[in-house]
């Protein structure tokens, strides 16, 4: 059964997303809404990660470092200047998509397995992942015109 492989992906994705929200929160302390909401959303992913861990034990997770590499690639360049915030939110959104897709895949398996506990965990976590994406998208849309058209380097 290869479920363990995807649980590994999911486990590490939630961890990366939590770390990335924490990182952006600390980096953008001068934007009070970013600092506070990213703190909150980091805590959500941390909680999801804890929930996933119990299934990792149940189905013998196969650890994966892919999401780790994804995060390192995304946040690779040292950013400064007006574009930084928009680019950091952009990367957070991409990481959130990775998490969301993992959840969609896991859900399919949970249905086949008739694992009610995993189904319920999916329902709880996936709904909040969508809310994380929604917030990121809203904030990105807000920041985009001012950043691209008016702000200078």
């Amino acid at each position: 059964m290869l479920l363990s492989h995807y649980l590994g992906l999911l486990e590490n994705s939630e961890k990366q997303l939590s770390d990335a929200f924490e990182y952006v929160s600390r980096k953008h302390k001068d934007e009070p809404d970013i600092e506070q909401i990213c703190q909150k959303l980091s805590a959500w992913s941390r909680e999801h990660h804890g929930k996933v861990m119990s299934f990792c034990q149940k189905y013998s997770e196969q650890q994966s470092s892919e999401p780790d590499k994804l995060k390192r690639d995304l946040f690779a360049e040292k950013r400064s200047g007006s574009l930084t915030l928009l680019r950091d939110l952009h990367d957070l959104w991409l990481l959130a998509q990775e998490v969301q897709l993992c959840w969609i895949v896991i859900r399919q398996a949970a249905l086949g397995l008739r694992d009610e506990e995993l189904k319920a965990t999916h329902e709880f976590c996936n709904a909040r992942t969508k809310r994380q994406s929604d917030w990121l998208l809203g904030r990105i849309k807000q920041a985009a015109p001012q950043t691209l058209l008016v702000a200078e380097q």
Binding site: D33, I37, K40, L41, R131, Q132, D134, W135, L137, G138
Partner: peptide, 9 residues
Amino acid sequence: HDLETGAPR
């Protein structure tokens, strides 16, 4: 909105 995050619907 999302009442917790403020994300617009």
